[in-house]
Design a protein around this nucleic acid. Structure first.
Length: 431
RNA sequence: UCCGCAGUAGCUCAAUGGUAGAGCAUCCGGCUGUUAACCGGAGGGUUGGGGGUUCAAGCCCCUCCUGCGGAGCCA
């Protein structure tokens, strides 16, 4: 007899094994009791047949409640009627801890209740699948960059000043000084790119905006690559390669999870194929006007506008060359039109919104100096950032991708809050 | 911050201004192949808080609280 994970059982038919896990659900019919056991690696139907089992085993099988932790011993049997194709014929059963009435029943629940019980909700099938997709995505991201010889540079969470103004930052006390939780690692990446050439950071970021939409969290994860000597066109290629490769990876390696989430893979497949449509901001404005939207050149796009643009193809689209006035101070102006920035937003299809924002960065010391002044930012706080241009300046580009937005899109979720283990939102800091 | 919707059993939801109900969960009973199993029974309620209208309020009015959706902002 050996210990086995449920995922291994199809290869252990005929063998006697011990499986340790939790009771997901139980069904019984007189002399027959089905225990659905989960152990994180899968779901197992364990069967106890009263006439064939010792009385104590039957009694324990009857006593076991939903989510009781337990160990079952028995022979693995091929069984078409069982989910997964195999089942366990229980010979011994030990309840490790009898679970009292479990709050999350096998019926529908509301979001407030589920979020209050997020620590338990994580055990349910859908949430289990989402976290596995997230895991595949984040590992894929690291592998993508590792294979291309990027160096991961972790940016600080506690920062002395805002990247783009202080209004959206969480403020905290730092030994009598004001400190802010980082809203982007990008500025700290730029000095590092001068050291390593190709770098990225990957960590949590914080926005104190009182956003109440399905597309916002106050704490979310962002991956931000930054590349020396890369120009705008190269950045567009990189973003496209990055996303298409990650989508393909998740489709290939998370088939079961996506199936459990009832995500139609054929809808995701166009995103595995390059190129993605690229549309100039000015053309996007015209296109939206043609669709009856009330937008003018110079406006930023809202969620509805983004959705309308993205829905034309099943792929993400890249909107390029936004007006400089509505973009960040550090973005390089378009050499053909200084009123525009070499900035890109990638919009996911199906209304999932912006997943990437990026740009070529200002390379000139003098221009950056002027922009900092124009935006009313405290020069002193950005001295180190200006040094990237002062001591051997160079063109460079980068983007940021929001992990939860991508997970939400890949899984076909209706809300970002399911894409992170413990969502932090306005009015929610528990559990 | 603004706009809209909602709050009834542990959970999801019903209930013309007139005796508060169902399903799931729990407990008891039945069933040898269940797939959110099924069938029968039982317990379970200060209808979010406060105030008001009325013979009578879960329902109408005021107010506060909480949640949800959206806008703005953004990934």
């Amino acid at each position: 007899m050996r210990d086995a994970e449920i995922r291994e059982l199809p290869g252990l038919v005929g063998e006697e094994v011990r499986v340790s896990g939790w009771l997901y659900n139980a069904r019984s019919s007189g002399k027959l009791r089905f225990l659905v056991v989960r152990d994180g690696s899968g779901y197992l139907q364990a069967v106890v047949f009263k006439p064939g089992a010792p009385e104590s085993v039957w009694a324990e099988a009857e006593r076991a409640t939903q989510e009781s932790s337990l160990r079952v011993v028995g022979k693995v049997k091929e069984e078409k009627r069982a989910p997964g194709g195999v089942e366990l014929q229980v010979e011994a059963l030990e309840i490790v801890q009898l679970c009292p009435e479990y709050p999350i029943t096998p019926k529908e629940h509301g979001p407030d209740f589920l979020l209050n019980n997020r620590h338990l909700w994580l055990r349910s099938k859908r949430q289990h699948a989402v976290m596995r997709v997230r895991n595949e995505l984040t590992f894929g991201i690291r592998e993508f960059f590792y294979r291309r010889n990027y160096v991961q540079i972790d940016s600080p969470i506690l920062t002395p000043a805002a990247a783009e103004g202080t209004s959206t930052l969480f403020e905290t006390d730092y030994f009598g000084e004001k400190a802010y939780l980082s809203q982007s690692g990008q500025l700290y990446l730029e000095p590092a790119v001068a050291a390593h050439g190709k770098v990225y950071c990957f960590g949590p970021t914080f926005r104190a905006e009182k956003s109440k939409t399905r597309r916002h969290l106050t704490e979310f994860w962002m991956v931000e690559p930054e590349i020396a000597w890369m120009r705008f066109e190269g950045l567009l290629d990189l973003a496209e390669e990055f996303v298409s490769e990650l989508v393909a990876r998740v489709i290939e390696r998370c088939k079961e999870d996506l199936e459990r989430l009832e995500r139609d893979i054929s809808v995701l497949e166009p995103a595995t194929r390059r190129p993605y449509p690229r549309i100039d901001y000015a053309d996007a404005v015209e296109k939206l006007k043609g669709k009856g939207f009330d937008v003018n050149f110079g406006d930023d796009f809202g969620g509805d506008e983004e959705t309308a643009l993205a829905d034309e193809s099943g792929k993400p689209i890249m909107i390029t060359r936004y007006p400089a006035a509505i973009k960040a101070f550090y973005m390089e102006p378009d050499p053909n039109d200084a009123s525009r920035a070499l900035a890109v937003d990638m919009i996911a299809p199906e209304g999932y919104g912006e997943i990437i924002g990026g740009s070529e960065r200002i390379a000139s010391y003098e221009l950056l100096e002027k922009r900092i002044a124009d935006h009313g930012l405290p020069r002193q706080a950005y001295e180190w950032y200006l040094d990237v241009r002062k001591y051997g300046g160079f063109p460079h580009s980068g983007f940021g991708m929001g992990i939860e937005r991508v997970v939400t899109w890949l899984c076909g979720l209706s809300h970002l809050r399911e894409a992170i283990p413990y969502p932090r939102m306005i009015n929610r800091l528990y559990p």
